[in-house]
Nucleic acid binder design. Structure first.
Length: 468
RNA sequence: GGUGGUAUAGCCAAGUGGUAAGGCACGGGUCUGCAAAACCCUUAUCGUCGGUUCAAAUCCGAUUACCACCUCCA
C-alpha cells in the first residue's frame, strides 16, 4: 500500500486514486522566459520519478504540466532580446523540451499553455464573480480570500496573520483597488505595452494563479489525485488555486498535495533561485556533466529533502550509475556460455527483490531505501555473473528487472555501445599476443585503448570491453 | 513576529523505543601474468543540556546553528 505525505494534512496517508488504476496528476510548470535552472529541473525530476514509480506499480498516469507563457517576465525578456513575447515563449519552451529530454524526464501527457486557454479563464472568472467570490475593480478582478472559509488551510497560515503581513507591505496602487489586502488578482487590466486580451472587464491578462485552476479542471476534472510543485508554491500559489477551484466547483480540488524540497547551493546551503541570482541553468549543467549522472543525482534524494548542488555529489552519482551499468554488462557478457532455460531459484530471488523494493518505495517514495535494495540486488547479480553455470533466461530476468528499477530514476541502461573496427582489431591482436604470453605487446595495446577510453577486462570467458 | 524544516561516520544518507541500512571515498585481502571488474573484511553512539523509560538517534522539555515560506520563485 502506497503511503504519501500530504502537505494539507501534514500526515502520511494511504494513497487511493479516484479511478482504479488511473492517477490524475498536475504539476506546476515553468514560466517560459528563460532557461530552467537546476532547481526547476529538480522539481520536474522529482515528479517524473514519482510518476514513473506509479507507472511501475501499474497505474496509468494522466500527467498535466503547464507552461506559463504570459506575464511581465516574458515581456521584459522580449524587450531585452528585441523579439515578440510569443517568440520568447516558443524559444524557451523549445529549450525546456530539450533540457528535460536530456534529463530523461517524460513529457507530460499534455503541456497546456495559458495563452491557449484565455476563454476558459474568462469564463471561470465570470463564474466566480457570479458566485460572489470575486469582484471587478477598475479593470482588475480580485478574489475575496476571506469569503473562502478554508483559506490558509494548506499553508496553515491564519488569515489575520496574513492580513498583518499583507498590510505591512507598501500599499501600492494595486492594494488600493482591493477590498482586503489579502485578496489576490484573477485578472489584471492592461498596462502600457503589455500583451492583452479582451474581456468583460476590458483589455487585460490573467492573474498568476488562475491558469492552473482552469487547466487542471479542464484537462483532469474537478477533483484530481495529486498536485505537485515546489514547496515555495504552497503559499500563495497553491492556496489560491484551492480557493478558486473549490469556490468554482464546490468540489474538493486535490486529494494529495505533494511538495518537493529545494536545490541549495553555496557555503550556506541557500535555495537556488532566479531572484537570488545563484542559479546554474540545466542547460549549462548538461554541457558539463554526464546526463544520466545529473538525472540520477537529482532523483536519488527523497523528493521532500533539499539537495545540495556540488560537483562532487554529481561525480558520486556518476560512479553509482557506472556500477549499475557494469553489473548489467558483466552479466550480459555471460550469455555466450549460458545454458538455455531459467534457474527457478533466481526467478524467485528476483521476484523477492522486486517486492522488497516496492515496500521501500511505497513509503512516500523513499528512494534511498529503494536504492539500498537495488544495491543488494546488484550484489546478487554480480555474484551470478561469476557463477560456474548460468542460465540465459535468468540472465535476462536479472538484467530486465535492473533496467526497470533504474528507469524509475530516469536512468536508461539499455543504450548500446559499439566499437569501431580499428579498436576491435586491436583487441583481437592483444588476445593473440596474450596467448603467446607476449605481455609487453598486450599491455601496450591495453594502454593505448585506455587512452581511447576503452577499458579491457580479462575474464575466464574471454576479453570484455567497456567504454569509460 | 507567525508557520514549517534540518542537524547521524571523511562525504552523501536510511533509521520514529530495544544496543546504528545502503552508497561513495580510504585501508587490508581474494581472484589476475599484471591490471580491471567483482567478491570478502575494516570505520560512527546519532548538534548541546536535562527528563521519561528496564531500554532513546528515536518520546518530552530546554538550548544552539542553519534553511525555507509569510512578496515573483520549482
Amino acid at each position: 500500500m502506497l503511503q504519501v505525505y500530504n502537505t494539507m494534512t501534514r500526515q502520511m496517508e494511504t494513497f487511493k486514486s479516484i479511478e482504479p488504476n488511473v492517477v490524475k496528476m498536475y504539476v506546476c510548470g515553468p514560466t517560459v522566459y528563460n532557461y530552467i535552472h537546476i532547481g526547476n529541473a529538480r522539481s520536474a525530476v522529482a515528479f517524473d520519478t514519482i510518476r514513473r514509480y506509479l507507472e511501475f506499480c501499474g497505474y496509468r498516469v494522466d500527467y498535466i504540466s503547464n507552461f506559463t507563457d504570459i506575464g511581465e517576465k516574458l515581456a521584459r525578456t522580449a524587450t531585452s532580446q528585441d523579439i515578440s513575447v510569443a517568440a520568447v515563449a516558443a524559444k524557451y519552451i523549445t529549450y525546456f523540451t530539450e533540457d528535460t529530454a536530456a534529463l530523461n524526464i517524460e513529457p507530460a501527457t499534455f503541456h497546456p499553455r495559458a495563452t491557449d486557454n484565455i476563454p476558459d479563464i474568462i469564463a471561470f472568472i465570470e463564474d466566480l464573480i457570479a458566485k460572489g467570490y470575486a469582484y471587478e475593480s477598475d479593470g482588475d478582478v480580485y478574489f475575496r480570500a476571506r469569503q473562502f472559509k478554508a483559506y490558509g488551510e494548506l499553508s496553515h497560515q491564519s488569515l489575520d496573520r496574513l492580513e498583518i503581513g499583507a498590510s505591512e507591505r507598501i500599499a501600492d496602487e494595486e492594494t488600493a483597488r482591493k477590498e482586503d489586502p489579502i485578496d489576490f488578482a484573477l485578472w489584471k487590466g492592461q498596462k502600457p505595452g503589455e500583451v492583452a486580451w479582451d474581456s468583460p472587464w476590458g483589455a487585460g491578462s490573467p492573474g498568476w494563479h488562475i491558469e492552473c485552476s482552469v487547466m487542471a479542471g479542464k484537462y483532469l476534472g474537478d477533483t484530481i489525485d495529486i498536485h505537485g510543485g515546489g514547496e515555495d508554491l504552497a503559499f500563495p500559489h497553491h492556496e489560491n488555486e484551492i480557493a478558486q477551484s473549490e469556490a468554482h466547483t464546490g468540489q474538493k480540488f486535490v486529494n494529495y498535495w505533494l511538495h518537493n524540497g529545494f536545490v541549495t547551493i553555496g557555503r550556506h546551503d541557500e535555495k537556488m533561485s532566479k531572484s537570488l541570482g545563484n542559479f546554474v541553468s540545466a542547460h549549462d549543467a548538461l554541457q558539463k556533466f554526464d546526463h544520466q549522472a545529473l538525472r540520477f543525482f537529482m532523483s536519488a534524494t527523497h523528493y521532500r529533502r533539499p539537495i545540495q548542488y556540488t560537483e562532487a555529489a554529481i561525480a558520486e552519482a556518476q560512479n553509482e550509475v557506472q556500477r549499475f551499468k557494469i553489473a548489467r554488462a558483466n552479466l550480459l557478457y555471460r550469455r555466450k556460455d549460458s545454458q538455455a532455460g531459467a534457474d527457478s531459484l533466481f526467478t524467485q530471488l528476483i521476484a523477492d527483490y522486486r517486492t522488497k523494493f516496492m515496500a521501500a518505495m511505497d513509503d512516500d517514495f523513499n528512494v534511498q531505501n529503494g536504492l539500498a535494495v537495488i544495491h543488494e540486488y546488484v550484489g546478487a547479480m554480480n555474484q551470478y555473473a561469476v557463477a560456474k553455470h548460468v542460465y540465459l533466461e535468468s540472465i535476462i530476468d536479472f538484467v530486465q528487472q535492473l533496467e526497470a528499477f533504474l528507469l524509475i530514476f530516469g536512468v536508461d541502461l539499455t543504450t548500446n555501445e559499439s566499437l569501431d573496427s580499428y579498436v576491435a582489431d586491436l583487441i583481437v591482436k592483444r588476445d593473440v599476443a596474450r596467448a603467446h604470453q607476449d605481455y609487453a605487446t598486450s599491455d601496450g595495446i591495453r594502454d593505448e585503448l585506455a587512452r581511447r577510453g576503452v577499458v579491457l577486462e580479462d575474464t575466464a570467458q574471454g576479453t570484455r570491453w567497456r567504454l569509460k
